[in-house]
């Protein structure tokens, strides 16, 4: 969906920049401080898995649906994973109705890359009859309230929805597939936690809010697995990064991803 013109008063831009010079931000955070993350698991009973993720005032919902489908010809023994994101007009006055635009598609593809690279779901376990029938896993991500950093909120919502997803057991007799009543947890084996940075002037902040995103020069998202390895990177925005800035973001991002993973784990244990 195309965004309409986004305007921020020059005076506000200067305020944000002046605050950054003093080591603080428009919402009172430190430059390397992430907003509080809260996750609600399994909010949609009719979905196989779902989660609402709040990062401050940013709110995103993701739902997982499973359907029987055909495998891709180059991976006959693997299930299919499809990620879709829509920045719907409900979430922000700057979003417009219409088919997904480049921003929606970029988020979906970066989330997809993270989950795929880390092998979040063991897709081989979603194969039912090799080359013929597999589970296709659809992760649909909807922005509900945009206050910056929809990238991380989308990535976390997708990962959390997978974490709590349950999929029907199947029996195969004489090539006929029967879907059973009984359900089992989705085989989630690795994590992909995105951490996004914004560069404003020569300052770098983590987890930008909406106003910071409006004035940022460039954006950098790094996704991490549980071992602190990078599983996806995406630079965005019209500006540039130096090598040192990228390594700063990578090192800080790795640390923050561990805190986020810990927080998600705690919140998941609370509901189980």
């Amino acid at each position: 969906m195309a965004k309409s013109e986004e305007i921020i008063p020059v005076i506000k831009k200067r305020t944000i920049e002046a605050l950054l010079e003093k080591g603080t931000r428009i919402d009172g955070r430190k430059l390397d401080e992430y907003r509080e993350i809260s996750v609600k698991f399994n909010v949609i009973e009719k979905a196989e898995g779902s989660a609402i993720v709040n990062i401050g005032n940013t709110m995103v919902i993701a739902g997982v649906k499973c359907v029987l489908g055909m495998p891709f010809s180059d991976t006959p023994d693997e299930g299919v994973l499809i990620v879709n994101t829509e920045l719907i007009p409900l979430a922000s006055p700057t979003f417009e109705p219409g088919p997904p635009g480049e921003d929606d598609i970029e988020i979906a593809r970066v989330v997809d890359r993270g989950l795929r690279s880390t092998k979040a779901v063991d897709l081989r376990k979603l194969c039912i009859i090799q080359g013929r029938r597999v589970w296709a896993l659809y992760i649909d991500i909807y922005a509900l309230n945009h206050d910056g950093n929809l990238m991380d909120a989308s990535g976390l919502a997708a990962y959390c929805a997978l974490l709590c997803a349950k999929i029907s057991k199947v029996s195969t007799e004489n090539e006929s597939i029967k879907i059973l009543e009984e359900k089992e947890p989705l085989p989630v084996q690795h994590q992909a936690i995105p951490v996004t940075f914004a560069k404003i002037g020569d300052k770098i902040v983590v987890d930008p809010c909406y106003e910071e995103e409006l004035i940022m020069d460039a954006r950098l998202t790094l996704s991490f697995n549980e071992e602190g390895q990078i599983c996806a990177i995406q630079k965005g925005g019209r500006g540039v990064f130096t090598l040192d800035e990228i390594m700063y973001c990578a090192e800080l991002g790795r640390k923050i991803s561990q805190d986020i993973a810990e927080s998600i784990k705690r919140q998941l244990e609370n509901i189980q």
Partner: peptide
């Protein structure tokens, strides 16, 4: 932008460590 030593595009998929990222960026340059 090679003359300015600034990175204008960076993406990655697959698994890499931070050290590998640094080595990769140097090789890319």
């Amino acid at each position: 932008m090679p003359g300015l030593d600034q990175i204008t595009l960076l993406q990655a998929d697959g698994l890499i460590t931070l050290d590998e990222l640094k080595e990769a960026l140097k090789l890319a340059k």
